[in-house]
Simulated scan of single mutants.
Amino acid sequence: MPGDVLLLSNSRPPGGAEPFAHAREVLASHLGGRAVWFVPYALADHDHYFAWVRRALGDGIDLRPLHREPDPAATAARAEAAFVGGGNTFRLLHDVRRLGVLDALRSAPDCRYTGSSAGTNLACPTIMTTNDMPIVDPGGLDALARVPFQVNPHYLDPDPASTHQGETREERIREFHEVNDVPVVGLREGAWLHRTGDHLALGGNTARLFRREQEPAELVVGTDLSWLLPRPTSS
């Protein structure tokens, strides 16, 4: 059975609460008791980012800086748990590919994976449903495929009072489905997806499920989405 996966929409909860305050319980159950290698490449200042997340998570999680390892790829290949932070998804994919960390994580399916924002995008088959600007060419859009569907973190509902004339998030996902037939889960702020074994559930906040040629479905906290996962094969 592949390692469990926790995919957070965001690290900073609404209302000015402490980082990860909305998800402390699920993070503790998902990562506690393991050496957790933090992957900071979505932001430019790796040391500052690691220190910020380390303080936010507290002493209950053994967080370690992957970027300080002499061979990050070799460490990632042996990791029992990895936490991939947010920032710019294109920079993240570019750097993990360049450093060999992408292939290392692919070769370690039992590694317990946590992603936030850009780190959540990296867990999908591709990064096509990120909200980020392509500030660097990542050498391809294929990602880890730790889940078989796409996620749109920081999902925003259309605001009928807005004067913005560009595409809404919903319209952009519909554009994605004009040429792709992969479900997309739009995670609102404070929401997460937690896969344990062959079970997948929504936690923290509501979300929306988008499928090609179907109307979006509203998802409440606790919704069982296990049907989105591949069925276990019998031996």
Rank of each mutant, 00 (worst) to 15 (best):
C124H: 07
T120C: 09
G100A: 11
D110F: 09
G100W: 08
L102Y: 08
V136E: 00
C111P: 02
P160V: 00
A123D: 05
D142Q: 13
A161C: 03
H154E: 14
I127Q: 04
I127G: 04
A161Y: 08
V136K: 01
A118Y: 06
M128P: 00
S107P: 08
T126F: 02
I135G: 05
D159K: 03
V147K: 06
N121M: 03
Y113G: 08
A143Y: 03
D110V: 07
R106E: 13
H154A: 09
H154N: 12
A161R: 15
V151S: 04
R112L: 12
G115W: 08
Q165W: 10
S162L: 07
R169W: 13
L122Q: 04
P138G: 09
P153S: 08
D110Q: 14
R169H: 15
T163F: 14
G115K: 10
A161K: 13
A108D: 09
R97D: 02
H154S: 11
A118L: 11
T126R: 02
T129A: 13
V101N: 04
A108Y: 09
N152H: 14
G140R: 00
N152W: 10
D142L: 04
A118M: 11
E167Q: 15
R106M: 11
M133V: 06
P109W: 09
C124I: 04
P153N: 08
Q165T: 15
T163W: 12
Q150P: 05
A161L: 14
S116K: 03
D132V: 03
H164M: 14
N131R: 10
I135L: 15
F149D: 06
P134R: 02
P160T: 00
P158L: 10
R112G: 12
L122V: 07
Q165A: 15
C111L: 12
R106V: 07
P138W: 00
Y113I: 12
P125Q: 02
L102K: 07
P125V: 03
E167K: 15
T130A: 07
G119M: 11
T168F: 03
T126I: 00
A145N: 10
G140T: 01
L105A: 12
D159W: 02
D132A: 08
